[in-house]
Amino acid sequence: MRTFDYKRADDAHSAVNAHSGQAAAYLAGGTTLIDLVKLDVMQPERLVDINRLAYDAIETTAEGGLRIGAMVRNTALADDDRVRRDYTVLSEALLQGASRQLRNRATTAGNVMQRVRCSYFRDGVSPCNKRVPGSGCSAIEGHNREVFAVLGTSDHCIAAHPSDMCVAMAAIGATVHVTGPSGDRTVDFLDFHKLPGDTPHIEHELGEDELITQVSLDAPIDGSGSTYIKLRDRSSYQFALASCAAVVALDGDRITAARLALGGVGTKPWRAADAEAALVGQPATREAFKQAAATAMQGATPYKHNAFKIPLARKAIVRALTDAAARARGDTT
């Protein structure tokens, strides 16, 4: 950790002002940022503390969705009655992330903005295109089992996006509300995180000094069931090796709507649109789910230590679809 300047902002306007013209970082829960500053991986000259900003509410939108304040803590979001009822997948995803202590601090916007767990990014020394653009990717030929992707990778970066919450939001459908020097705007959640391509240091759509103020969720699909399945080596406090957020609506036993997103395997929260499309109109059978899983993982690229993630993700998909469909039928499992 190097010396930095600290400013506490009282509103979004003053936060953006304090951020501009500096090598600055917004400080919310700090669960990623402070770690990386201590490790000397991030070297902000100024931290702009946004914890006092009044974005701490979860409101119902006119469209029947929810608008979640940037500063709503992960614990509060997971425990919210409307989230538990209408967006079970989101509550379950949050509760399988990190530990309770971390969830008590971590915020909604901070979760959207969390950095990758790639050890080569975090060691501050190895070549890493995210940390030092153009220096190379150490992970591609290195040790790449746990927190590395098989979807959306490039020759420049294979780090998996670590969030569980974002996977659920990608499945639900969401909008990121942003404010900044040139005013307010919105970004579709699926467009917010960027593929690494040949610019892995550009991770998201935020412009200079821009700040996330809210994330709004699309209205829940009527009669749908949803769930989040996270597969990992230990039962808690580990990032997903493969995870799946599934939302399924049925008419009888026929699938009328399906939403599918993957975690642990993608370089961004990974919406599996082709697999969704193939499911609609199909009977909710194991065969259909397995076919969807195969479709979702079709373009996957295995690396030296993480090839197992491809079959593992397929298993997560089949299980998530099975459980979501059961919930859509009203089974109490």
Partner: peptide, 21 residues
């Protein structure tokens, strides 16, 4: 890392030990 002998999971998140669960 087999190329340079650097321990790559040198933290409590990625060096796994059992948790209460």
């Amino acid at each position: 890392d087999e190329r340079n002998a650097r321990p790559v999971n040198s933290n409590y998140a990625e060096y796994l030990v059992p948790v209460n669960a």
